[in-house]
Every structure is written in structure tokens, then in C-alpha cells.
Design a protein around this nucleic acid. Structure first.
Length: 299
DNA sequence: TCACGTCAAGCAGAT
DNA sequence: ATCTGCTTGACGTGA
């Protein structure tokens, strides 16, 4: 069991998601941003290792506009050695890596062009992980996509389009239950057909539930992860108090986190904390896990 | 140096 | 029709 947080560290003074406006694109601007982002990424990973945090989500804007037609620069070649260096650090310390292409990435879109752009975006994410020479256990998570007024057809379209994806994308893609459209059960039905692993989002499950208890949901979803995929990834968050349902809390509540840990026994999985204050909550979670047999760094 | 309008992409749900 | 949230602020123009 590993604890992780997404993309940003608020303690360190750097940002691994430095970008710029599309209008101001230039190769030199790209190089400058990526240099900064890779440098900061490694700093964050070092910080994490020091603090027993062995799960991390890499920002999608690591290479700004990487999948956009405006970008013709061979950043893959230019930063090859840096990617390898970061990858070595990740492997040396047994860090689990995930990425989360954003909400514009829709492989079940009715629009063929949106699918093509999404495929390019996914391919870019896969390239980042490939350049670091990470194995299949480093994943890219997306939601199933839009419903477009007909969920069954949209699920079928997802399955069909999945078959058309490049193998570099397929081997890393996992699907996640979302808070409005596709429940855990929906994701499971897709997984049963095409074998794609299902990442379990605890918070989304509480907002958009298909009936399973926490342990029941983990029991189901963990089976979709094969040996080569690594152990189940879980997204964990909680409701922000006095805000509308679905908004993420500012900080972890250790009491309810411990309740969740208890409910999830005896299963082992990696937990991504989608909480606003990032590493601060991750540090609290690491502390709360001391004494849990599942927490021993790598699993 | 700072305020603030706007930023590649799409969907769903609320207003 | 328009706005907001999503996983997340911050770029960059104009003063």
C-alpha cells in the first residue's frame, strides 16, 4: 500500500506544470517549460521518498501542447536523458506513477475528430511513461466519457474505440468510475468485455453509487488488475463541508480515513489522495498508516 | 509590480 | 442560453 497525491507540491517552491498560452508557442518556450517541469518533478519525487510517499500522479501539462498540431518539436529526443534519469529514480525507489489525461480526452465521443485528438493526447501521456522506461504498472486513468443521451450505445462505442487504440496506450489505460455518469458497475461491465483495469474512486462512488459497499467495490475492482498491471489504484477524497455535493475537501479527515482503511481490509492497493492541500494530507495519511500491516513501502 | 480577463480541447447539470 | 466544475491556477496584457 502506497500513499500518493496528484501533480503539485505546495511545500516546495517549484511547479511541474509550467505552461504558456497557445498564442505564444515557440520551441524555445516549450524547452524552457519542460526543463523547469522535469526539474521540479524530480524534486517532488525526492521530497516524497524522504517522506514515505511512494505514489505520485504526474501532471498532464508536463510537456505543454505535446499533442497539439502546433508542437512539431522533438521533445522526446531532446529530453531523452532526463526522462531516463527520472525513470531510474522512480524504479530505484519503487515509486508507483499515474497520469490523468483531462476531461477533454474522450474516446467514446460521437465526433471522430474528438476521438482522434484524444488518442493523440493519450499517446503523449504513454510516451512520457515510456521515455521513463516504466513498466505496465504505471497507468493513465480516464473516465468512460460522455453519455450522449444513450448510455448503452456510448459504452459500446467505448469498447469499439478501445480496440482501435495504439498498443502503447492500451497497455497503460485504466478506467475510473465518475461522479455523474458512469458508475463502478458500468466500468466493471466494460472491463469484463475488454479486460481494461478499473480504478476505484471512493468519493465518486459515494456520489454516483451502484450499490456496492466499500469493501465490495474494492473486491470487485481489484480483480480487474492483472499481475502485469500492479495492484489496484484507488482515488480517495471526501466531501468539502458546507459545499455542494461532489466538491473536494481542503484537507484530509484522519478519522474518516481510518474508517475507510478499516473497511477496506484486508485488501492491498495504492491510494491517491485527491485533496486540495496535497502533500500535507499525504503526510498525515502516511502517519495514520503506521501500524497497518499493508503499509510497508512497496507491495 | 500588480490587477484582472482569459486561457486548446467537452461534457453534464445547475442556473 | 449561459455558467460552473472537473484533477489544478496562472499566463500575459495593460496600466
Amino acid at each position: 500500500m502506497r500513499i500518493g497525491y496528484p501533480c503539485l507540491n505546495r511545500t516546495l517552491g517549484c511547479k511541474a506544470g509550467k505552461t504558456f498560452r497557445l498564442k505564444s508557442y515557440s520551441d524555445s518556450r516549450l524547452i524552457e517549460s519542460v526543463e523547469n517541469n522535469l526539474d521540479c518533478l524530480l524534486k517532488m519525487l525526492r521530497f516524497n521518498v524522504k517522506n514515505n510517499i511512494f505514489f505520485f500522479r504526474i501532471s498532464s501539462v508536463l510537456v505543454p501542447f505535446a499533442s497539439h498540431p502546433v508542437c512539431k518539436f522533438n521533445w522526446q529526443e531532446h529530453f531523452k536523458s532526463t526522462f531516463i534519469e527520472i525513470g531510474k529514480f522512480i524504479k530505484k525507489h519503487g515509486i508507483r506513477i499515474s497520469m490523468h489525461p483531462d476531461q477533454f480526452t474522450l474516446i467514446n465521443s460521437l465526433d471522430e475528430d474528438i476521438f482522434k485528438r484524444s488518442h493523440k493526447e493519450l499517446f503523449y501521456h504513454a510516451q512520457v511513461l515510456d521515455l521513463m522506461e516504466l513498466d505496465n504498472k504505471a497507468k493513465m486513468q480516464i473516465h468512460v466519457g460522455g453519455v450522449y443521451g444513450n448510455k448503452k450505445e456510448s459504452i459500446d462505442r467505448f469498447i469499439y474505440r478501445f480496440g482501435k487504440l495504439d498498443s502503447a496506450v492500451k497497455r497503460r489505460l485504466v478506467i475510473e468510475n465518475d461522479d455523474v455518469s458512469y458508475t463502478l458497475r458500468n466500468c466493471m461491465s466494460i472491463s469484463n468485455k475488454i479486460g481494461v483495469p478499473v480504478l476505484f474512486d471512493v468519493f465518486h462512488h459515494s456520489v454516483n453509487c451502484s450499490g456496492e459497499s466499500v469493501s465490495g467495490a474494492i473486491k470487485l475492482s481489484r480483480r480487474t488488475w492483472k499481475e502485469k498491471d500492479g495492484i489496484l489504484m484507488v482515488d480517495y477524497s471526501l466531501q468539502k463541508k458546507n459545499a455542494k455535493p461532489g466538491s473536494h475537501a481542503e484537507s484530509i479527515d484522519i478519522k474518516s480515513f481510518k474508517t475507510f482503511l478499516k473497511a477496506s481490509r484486508p485488501y492491498d492497493f495504492d491510494i491517491m489522495l485527491e485533496i486540495k492541500d496535497k502533500e500535507k494530507s499525504a503526510l498525515k495519511a502516511v502517519k495514520a498508516l503506521k501500524g497497518d500491516k499493508r503499509f510497508g513501502g512497496t507491495a
